[in-house]
Design a protein around this nucleic acid. Sequence first.
RNA 1: GGGCGUGUGGCCUAGCCUGGAUAAGGCACCGGCCUUCUAAGUCGGUAACCGCGGGUUCGAAUCCCGCCACGUCCGCCA
Length: 574
Amino acid sequence: MYPLDQCKKEITAELQKVVAKYHNNEEIRVEIPPEGMGDFAFPCFSFAPLLKKSPMEIAKEIAANIPKNKWITTVEAKAGYVNFFIDTTCLTTATLQSILEKKDTYGYLPKKKKKVIIEHTSANPNGPLHVGRARNPIIGDTLVRIFKAAGYDVESQFYLDDMGKQVAILAWGVNNIDHRHIPASENKKADHQNVGFYQIANERMESDETVAQQIGDIVKKLEHGDHKTIEMIHASYAPVLDGIKQSLLRINIHIDTYVQESTFVYDKSVERIIKELKQTPHCHEQDDAFYLDMEPFGIQGRNTKFFFLRKDGTTLYATRDIAYHQWKAHHADMLVNVLGEDHKLESKQVRVALELLQTKILPQVVFYAFVSLPGGKMSTRRGRVVYLDELIDECIERAYEEVKKRRASELTESQMKKIAELVGIGSLRYNIIKVQPEKDIMFKWEDALNFEGNAVPFIQYAHARACSILGKTKTKDHKFEAAVLTHASEAALIKQLARFPLIIDDACNNCKPHTVANYLYETASAFNQFYRDCPVLSEENKVLRSSRLTLVEATKIVLHTALDLLGITAPEEM
RNA sequence: GGGCGUGUGGCCUAGCCUGGAUAAGGCACCGGCCUUCUAAGUCGGUAACCGCGGGUUCGAAUCCCGCCACGUCCGCCA
């Protein structure tokens, strides 16, 4: 157990003892008070009507009955709250020891021996990833990292749509359109080179009945397990998928498993699901097609019919998704999906179906709002997009200009290039992850590429500063004396470091990756204040100097680990 | 028409789940700090009736109801 957990637990236990005589049956919940009023606080308002005393009197009474111990130094009653001041020396010792001992696993929680499958990205392989979709891999990969840190065994999955119309359109294009009719793309990656086939094929499909027919035929053949067709599809999108993987790799994202949708048609699991769904009382037939009535499950609107079988006997995307989820449920203890908000209804329909089929494990879904452009929504079909690759390039280029402006006289060209890469990629990931997924975001270059204030360079810079200090000393193992780290900036920084394990726990339990970004910003900020107030290398008092060095080392470790949770590299210098 | 989500200083964001002590940051703007570990830093200032209206409560940005605006969905598409 980490120091702050232990401390909180003791305070809660002491409160429990005192409050027991008020016949309180609510759970004791301590909160974090505003600046200067201690480390933990307990509000007494709810006892007032019960005891017919003022909250202030009750707070005084409770405060007087809390014994001091190793953790609790001062207990005071103020404005109806019992405020606890914890022993800084004790917290400092325990926290720094914990960090030095666990190093880059400080903050990690005990192994839970549970497997979680996190599905994210799952983009149609018909073109390059664009900025709207970019939120998906970044949220997904960050969750993967957070769940691992929280002690889970994690597998990331990309659900690959190789049966749908989108990929059939691309395949038709690749096989029927002369490449000279495809508008040239500046980017040489295969996903950029091939997206034109999809766009042109899409136009042709809309204007030409025969083309639409041919594409429909491809989809039908896929459903009926025509091997030649499925091979043709795989061959058509393979280069595009490869390009997508390369883009993901550029932003430090690797996906463990790519699961083909066709798997569930060919292994007959979709067939089995249809049979089972037909036997549920909510299944109805209409013109030889089958649907579940969603009305009893809280779904309202113009149409509450969830069709899972067409009249021609073929299945639908959502039907196959049910099979995929059942398969996942067999292979994991917990499921997490990252989906765009346009999938909310489909996701709910799949959930209801899974419940009807008595599937043991249901997915926890993180929905994100689309990233829009100042003029409106992005669309691959209409070519109205900012591609992820363009954004990556622009971020790195802009970061390079910044490095050059500041460090050109001190660093070599290759050093600057390397730093620009880390800062550029980091900026991209940080800017997307720092905002709650459900919040709409409008994409503006000036915001995405702003390198000041609450942005990744601020954090990376703090890390580089820590490295710089540590690099200027010869001694490696730092001894520390907690009692000398008494400056307010030191105490604030240590408390911040102590909070890290709680942040991981919270971010994982609530699937809120943005809280890690907030924590990082606060930690870097606390370090910058310490940096201003407490000279390290020039400190003459040997014990204080070495204790501060230890604190710098500890901060460096935490910043590094927390950045890693966001898939961002911590540079040694910048 | 209905469902779901979002609405916090000029702009952007945290806090909302689990109600609590002066609503916390960033950008922009104004004014300080580089003979001291990288100023991508730091200190101070101006700026918010927390979308609007009700309700619950000792107490509401937070919970409940209604309304408005924006996003998204309501296909035998994916």
